[in-house]
């Protein structure tokens, strides 16, 4: 992405670093805030090139709104999946039917694909094994019957519907 200016990328890095500083110090004392700002400006000068490719466009209000909505949504999905896996661990018969399934994603950007892979891995019961372009290979602890068809397209559709689709509608807006 060469079209994003260096100033925009630099400013974005400064803002993010400064926010992290504010969270870690949790103080509004002018000395602390001033020193944090100074450090952010210095550190960002060295790191902005590898820190971001999108620059300030990442802070578009629509993206931030979706990100804020994504957090509770993701936490809820994570809690439900946790309970599901906890049930499988505690059940005497150990009801697991694992397999590696094939999903396709509609996300385009690398950061978006990374976030999707991370979200899938963080949700218990599914782990991203490999990503190749828009192909995701996911180890699933309970492969449902519908995904066990011989038809490749049908399989991909069912698997994507279950694993990637719920996260994609948010990540598509946040990362593109």
């Amino acid at each position: 992405m060469g079209e994003v200016s260096k100033a925009s990328r630099y400013l974005y890095t400064v803002i993010i670093l400064f926010l992290i500083w504010l969270m870690l110090t949790a103080s509004l004392d002018p000395q602390e805030v001033g020193f944090g700002l100074l450090l952010s400006l210095i550190v960002a000068a060295f790191t902005y090139e590898i820190f971001t490719t999108g620059g300030l466009s990442n802070l578009h209000p629509r993206r931030i709104a979706y990100m804020l909505a994504y957090l509770p949504y993701f936490l809820w999905a994570m809690i439900m999946a946790n309970i599901d896996v906890a049930y499988r661990v505690l059940h005497p018969a150990r009801p697991i039917r694992p397999g590696i399934v094939h999903c396709k994603t509609v996300l385009k950007s690398d950061v978006g694909k990374l976030s999707l892979a991370n979200s899938i891995t963080l949700t218990p019961g599914t782990i991203t094994l490999d990503v190749d372009d828009d192909n995701y290979f996911i180890h699933w602890i309970w492969v449902p019957d519908e995904a066990l068809t011989g038809d490749e397209e049908e399989h991909v559709k069912v698997a994507s519907e279950n694993i990637t689709r719920p996260f994609e509608k948010f990540l598509k807006v946040i990362f593109g």
Partner: peptide
């Protein structure tokens, strides 16, 4: 007991 391995096929 694993039921499917699409990665190997791929």
């Amino acid at each position: 007991g694993s039921v499917v391995d699409k990665y190997a096929e791929y």
